[in-house]
Design a protein around this nucleic acid. Structure first.
Length: 888
RNA sequence: GCCGGGAUGGCGGAAUCGGUAGACGCAGCGGAUUCAAAAUCCGCCGCUGGUAACAGUGUGGGGGUUCGAGUCCCCCUCCCGGCACCA
């Protein structure tokens, strides 16, 4: 055995051995229980970053642990290879996105392999390859024919200078990121997945996922946003014809408080009013500026303009003015809302700003009761005293509805109706029921379940994506590409220039024959949202080589995924789309399960400081932390020495250029150190603030581990302890060993918290270092501890653990150490003594001691006597195995 | 703005079911070893007062429940993630 710990030697040897023996090849033939362990596949951005290291090490720990526990493990890897960064790189460096992407994949594969992950590389896939996206196109055509995919208009960000559609990320403060031009909204036709048809199932399916974090399920549930409300109409006359303005509300109980309606700028009513009003037309044009992102819509200043038109309140017959509101979304519901300023904070602000009336129609139960009591002079049957009257008057005057300022609770659903005619004194449910019934009787509305979730628009006006398999024929319309003509192959020799989709300029791609009538036709040049590829890759890993269809029988052998690991930032979109796709594939008969991922671990983000410079136009250039020098709180760029601005600590990302390259870490200390540090620095679910400090410590521990093994083996390996008389020291160490085995198993398997598992093994090694003696029994215990420590650490640091284990037990197959229950037995335990909840001492008692004898021992102890001062205790709380609290 | 999280020593974090706050590691300080340094080993290490024993105080801020609160409840501040075209 080498005296020195030489990570690079150990790691190269181990990796060569694993490759040669195909150690991580997953087999469908095995009769052991399967464990499909999947980490979210990476976008091949160029280099591995710490987020990847963290993600894949977490997955690897779980995969290796289960393999040691006897499972038939599959852990695959692939590439989420389509996407915007490849086009940006193409524009910047004049290289085709395809070439850039493939080069990145090759580099990152090498980096991943250097991490020593237990991956079955024979299942590797890349979504930009025709043998992958072919089946995505095939499913698209199936769903198109079934009506699950349809076409409609949708609003996008339009850069009028670059003449291109912008991603939300590319809109910075309302301007295009490259041109700086004010961004406009533009309506274009797009294909949509009818995900709303599955909304109910996506919602109820969450209840079948106990292995998912509660917060993710809550977020998805809120995103789907099922709400029961009323859809109803305000009738009006136009050119002598009866027409209706439809709205949806979850607060039909406030309908008597409607003082105006607001419609989106794109609403037909708005367009009609603008025909004869140039100011209105100008306002509509202004509303069409800016990005389509909801966050922008929700934070911008709420503006509106009166259309001069009115509609009729369906229940009161009152004339209700119609306004255009820049915050009303055409794509949501009917593009119009009823406004009840008294009970909706947004409407309240709008009404205040434009001097519109505010009519209170809901009040708290307590206030209504107080008013009633004052009016009748009685509280229930009890006559009011003058003191009661005073109190009630006081209560009412301090809780008076104010139109000056919005107060929390004005939008409560727990109030009851007032100023609402026949609906007065009804509570929320009763009022909604009565109002819905009355509207239905008028044929002007009904109860409706509405979802916040919108259909999924997947058309992207970009080159580097999966071509949408549709052919446009003047005679036949939109025709799906027949299965035998698939895949529609994306040409890989294209270099985009930032002005629209270059596929439009490729006659060889665009021109084709209509599959139905044979006439000359045009191929669709939009590509699919890259979320589509990542919605089914987990299934394709089961059969990546199958060329007879999307999936074969192996899919049901492996699915559902037993453990899915990925960033919390994917809590809603990716995970919802993947769940949706699983149901689509199920309904196509491709998979038999209802949900794709049984257990989900949402890893926290790896965050790092950001640094940037801003030019005159406000455009920011981001600097990598590796290129920035911090001295006395001033940050400068290492290459030019000039200062850079310190931004916030944010998720490591391409756009902020704050990713830390783990390669340097691996080169210097080895993969095991990188893995150990990432697992030790924070629990998986928390965000991990990157810092170079601490890596040393992880490396030192591995050196100490190696040295402990080396020193023990100087006198030769022995058989691990199996029985016989033990000293106090060896007995204590064995108890700690078996407690550690229990803890590490529980930490990995149930708690999925690896930092504490590592800490426990560190403590064990610290204790081992203090064990003295070289007699046969002591050496056998030392052997037992070292063997176990190597196995317990193997999921985290597989290379060094295997190497050490091989020295300790040459030729043996590593197993997860079993717990020896007899080693855990303890005769005496220490109990804490508290007086009035404050720690005042401790006592040792027999494990078998009953409450009464513990209490007696506690009261007798000197540390308690001091505080009793001769008085009898008021109360004694005995918590078995923990403490005694004496109240005086 | 809306939805979901988070905040514990100088730093990363631990405390699993309401029961010893600060495990483990980093940094720091002291010592051993060394010609010297690195590495290694040993010890100390929340804050305040005290030579010490010890006492007080302490988990973002304010209030509450409890024999007992980092943990539960209410309110607030700040930070992070998502918001449908970054992935």
């Amino acid at each position: 055995m080498q005296e020195k710990y030489l990570p690079s030697e150990i790691e190269h040897a181990a990796q060569a051995r694993w490759t040669a023996s195909q150690a991580y090849r997953a087999s469908e033939a095995s009769d052991r229980p399967k464990y499909y362990c999947l980490s979210m596949f990476p976008y091949p951005s160029g280099k591995l970053h710490m987020g990847h290291v963290r993600n894949y090490t977490i997955g690897d720990v779980l995969a290796r642990y289960h393999a040691l526990r006897g499972f038939n493990v599959m852990q695959p890897m692939g590439w989420d290879a389509f996407g915007l960064p490849a086009e940006n790189a193409a524009i910047a460096n004049n290289v085709p996105p395809a070439a850039w992407t493939y080069a990145n994949i090759d580099h990152m594969r090498t980096q991943l392999q250097a991490l020593g992950l237990a991956i079955d590389w024979s299942r590797e896939l890349a979504t930009c390859k025709p043998d992958y996206y072919r089946w995505e196109q095939w499913l698209f055509t199936r769903l198109f024919e079934k009506g699950v995919i349809y076409k409609k208009m949708a609003t996008v960000n339009w850069d009028p200078v670059d003449q291109t559609v912008l991603a939300n990320e590319q809109v910075i403060e309302g301007r295009g990121w490259r041109s700086g031009a004010l961004v406009e909204k533009r309506d274009i036709p797009m294909y949509f997945f009818r995900i709303t048809q599955y909304a109910d199932e996506l919602l109820s399916g969450l209840d079948t996922l106990p292995g998912w974090p509660e917060r993710v399920k809550t977020m998805q549930s809120n995103w789907i946003g099922k709400s029961v409300g009323v859809r109803f109409a305000f009738p009006y006359q136009h050119d002598g014809k009866d027409e209706q303005l439809w709205v949806f509300t979850t607060r039909a109980d406030t309908i008597m408080g409607v003082t105006f309606c607001a419609v989106a700028a794109e609403h037909p009513l708005a367009a009609r009013a603008a025909e004869s009003n140039s100011a209105l037309a100008a306002f509509i044009a202004e509303c069409k500026q800016g990005s389509v992102a909801e966050a922008d819509m929700a934070t911008m200043e709420k503006k509106g303009m009166d259309t001069g038109l009115t509609v009729t309140h369906p229940l009161t017959g009152e004339a209700i003015p119609v306004w255009i509101g820049n915050y009303v979304l055409m794509s949501y519901g009917d593009g119009a809302v009823m406004a009840v300023p008294a009970h909706d904070e947004r409407d309240f602000g709008f009404a205040q700003k434009y001097g519109l009336p505010i009519k209170q129609v809901i009040d708290h139960v307590a206030i209504v009761d107080a008013r009633k009591a004052l009016a009748t002079g009685k509280n229930g049957d009890q006559p009011l005293t003058s003191e009661d009257i005073e109190k009630l008057k006081n209560f009412l005057s301090t809780n008076k509805y104010s139109t000056d300022r919005w107060h929390d609770g004005y939008d409560t659903k727990l109030g009851i109706c007032i100023n609402s005619g026949k609906y007065d004194s009804l509570d929320y449910t009763a009022a909604v029921d009565a109002i819905a019934a009355d509207l239905a009787a008028l044929n002007l509305g009904e109860k409706k379940t509405q979802f916040r979730l919108r259909d999924w628009g997947i058309s992207r006006q970009r080159y580097w994506g999966c071509p949408i398999p549709i052919i446009h024929c003047d005679a036949c319309g939109d025709v799906p590409v027949p299965a035998e003509q698939l895949p529609v192959v994306l040409p890989e020799d294209v270099v985009p220039d930032g002005s629209g989709n270059p596929l439009n300029k490729r006659a060889d791609f665009v021109n084709c024959a209509c599959p139905k009538c044979g006439a000359p036709a045009r191929r669709e040049t939009d590509t699919m949202d890259t979320f589509v590829e990542s919605s089914w890759y987990y299934a394709r890993y089961a059969c990546p080589d199958f060329d007879g269809g999307m999936l074969d029988a192996r899919a049901n052998k492996w699915l559902p995924v037993d453990q899915y690991i990925g960033g919390i930032e994917h809590a809603i979109l990716h995970l919802l789309y993947a769940r949706f796709f699983h149901k689509l594939m199920r309904d196509e008969g491709l998979v038999s399960s209802n949900e794709p991922f049984v257990n989900l671990l949402t890893q926290g983000m790896v965050i790092a400081d950001t640094y940037y410079r801003e030019d005159a136009s406000g455009k920011k250039t981001w600097f990598n932390p590796a290129d920035v020098e911090l001295r006395d709180g001033v940050a400068t760029c290492k290459t030019d020495g000039a200062p850079v601005i310190v931004g916030g600590t944010e998720k490591m990302s391409k756009s902020k250029n704050n990713g830390v390259d783990p390669q340097a870490l691996i080169d210097l200390y080895g993969a095991d150190t990188a893995r150990l540090f990432t697992m030790f620095a924070a629990p998986p679910e928390q965000s991990l603030e990157w810092s170079d400090a601490g890596v040393e410590g992880a490396h030192r521990f591995l050196r100490r581990l190696w040295k402990a093994g080396y020193e023990h083996l100087q006198a030769g390996a022995v058989a691990a302890y199996t029985g016989g008389e033990l000293s106090e020291a060896t007995k204590t160490l064995r108890r700690q060993l078996h407690q550690t085995i229990q803890k590490v198993s529980d930490d990995i398997e149930r708690r999925k918290q690896f930092n504490t598992a590592i800490a426990a093994v560190m403590e064990l090694m610290n204790a081992l270092a203090k064990l003295e003696g070289d007699d046969a029994t002591t050496r056998s215990v030392r052997q037992e501890v070292l063997e176990a420590a190597a196995a317990l650490l193997a999921p985290m640091v597989p290379h060094v653990a295997e190497a050490l284990y091989a020295e300790l037990r040459p030729g043996a197959v590593m197993i997860w150490p079993p717990v020896d229950a007899t080693a855990l037995v303890q005769d005496e335990i220490e109990l804490m003594l508290q007086v009035n909840g404050k720690l005042r001492g401790q006592i040792r008692v027999a494990v078998s001691a009953d409450k009464a004898s513990i209490e007696a021992a506690a009261l007798a102890s000197e540390s308690v006597q001091k505080y009793l001062e001769g008085q009898p205790p008021k109360k004694v709380v005995v918590v078995p195995g923990r403490l005694v609290n004496i109240v005086v």
